[in-house]
Design a protein around this nucleic acid. Structure first.
Lengths: 132, 132
DNA sequence: CTTGACCTTTACGGAAACGTAAAGTAGGGA
DNA sequence: TCCCTACTTTACGTTTCCGTAAAGGTCAAG
């Protein structure tokens, strides 16, 4: 099985995802990622890489690191007992609902901004005529 | 013309929008709203109310107060000269593009979470069978 | 062996968006 | 008149998410 590369250095991930090493170490402090070590160096596996992608996307959609951690933990535990799983499903569902509401807000904001853009463009055209 | 009510007190807006008075005063400090005064009391007009709604929605979609202020200012200025308007359109368009990308992230996150929910539910069903 | 690139930890700093305590004012009801 | 409620300002405190030195370890190249 041809893997892309078993391990990535911190610098490689920084380049790939455009984040600072400081941020990655911070995420590690906050227990969002836990790369292995070769001596003192961090070795990021594909799994860590995937988690990082998750983290960054979570951030972009407005989740706090704490919220992201909670969801990542749920992913990990996946195989707990039933009550655990029930709670997992509930938490995830709540987030999904929240994200859907957020999407409504985003759509509304886009619409409003685009409407405003058209209005300004119209004003512009009007002035262009008057200046003829 | 039957208006809903010419002026609102700070408490009324707090109740209506579920924000604290502290927040509203903060927005005022940051020049996002500028309610009139009757003596020392703040009087919020319908316009202020609309702006507040805008602010809160902006927040929900992840805009910073500074970004929100910039957009609100653009709304106000609407009637500047051409270069002004050009910049206005550009800024708004940039925000629209950013929001659209954000929506893509949201959709991806929703999809992933929903997939995970299904997976957990499936695990749950499996265990239910084994426990028979 | 020294240089340079890349990595490490520790720790203080800082913006954003308010919370919260303190202390005072304004107006209406009993 | 007294009191209660809603409002006010001032100002320091808090949380989140890192930035930014400071001070040094590691390892390959020259």
């Amino acid at each position: 099985m041809l893997q892309h590369k078993e391990h990535h250095s911190i610098g490689e991930l920084c380049d790939e995802f455009s984040v600072t090493a400081r941020a990655l170490r911070f995420y590690e402090d906050e227990a969002l990622i836990a790369p292995e070590r070769r001596g003192t160096q961090r070795l990021y596996t594909e799994r860590d890489r995937a988690r990082l992608a998750w983290i960054l996307r979570g951030k972009r959609v407005g989740l706090s690191l704490a919220e992201i951690k909670e969801l990542l933990d749920l992913y990990d535990i996946g195989d707990g007992r039933r009550t655990q799983r029930l709670k997992t499903v509930e938490t995830c569902q709540a987030r999904v609902d929240s994200l859907k509401r957020q999407r409504v807000d985003i759509d509304a904001t886009i619409k409003e901004l685009e409407g405003f853009i058209e209005l300004v463009k119209a004003q512009d055209a009007e002035q262009a005529i008057q200046e003829k």
